[in-house]
Amino acid sequence: MIAIKDLHKSYKMGSNVLHVLKGINFNVEEGEMVAIMGSSGSGKSTLLNIVGMLDLLDTGSYTLDGVPIVNLNETKAAKYRNKFLGFIFQSFNLINYKTALENVALPLYYQRVPKKERDEKALQYLTKVGLANWATHLPSELSGGQKQRVAIARALAAQPKVLLADEPTGALDSTTSYEVMQLLQEINDEGKTLLVVTHEEDIAKMCKRIVQLKDGVIIEDKKVNQIRASEYV
């Protein structure tokens, strides 16, 4: 599903060059649930952003679902993002003046799905995350966990190949975190590929594979026995 070869990425900070990713080789098969771990500054978010086409790589190659991601201009990147990827952010990033339903329907708007169909699908995904009753509420009327579930529904709505979650539980208390992880596990159970960036050990252990990053290189890549979040809830 994801194939990354010899990936390098550096940022210019004034006169200094910050070499963030120093040769990453990394493959993800379909249906995997991978945790990317590392302390802050290890390059884990940068890696996720490159996978998410939110950022560009310097050298190396990146293939997503058999499509080589090269020569990305903004329009092309936007189309790929819309088609292949769903994002879940730490700070939810819901549009504050849109209702839960409208937020979920937004990726479908950019896929030019007709309004009626869009709303039906959005409601379907809201139901899936257990928030059908909150469809007409604004993000400001929802709790943190609910917001993240709306964001997950939104990420799912476009039916992407891969879900990318950047610290999905970073802004939530542990009970809510486990609820969100349970939801992500269920989504993975249905065969969706998931990439989760986290620095929390217990969250990482709920994935099927843990990749440890340190100073821009992968220092450990192991399969683990998934701990079901439902045990905690």
Partner: peptide, 14 residues
């Protein structure tokens, strides 16, 4: 920020 969110969801610059 809203523009960023929209772009992440697949909005083209155009």
């Amino acid at each position: 920020k809203e523009i960023g969110v929209r772009k992440a969801l697949g909005a083209t610059p155009f």
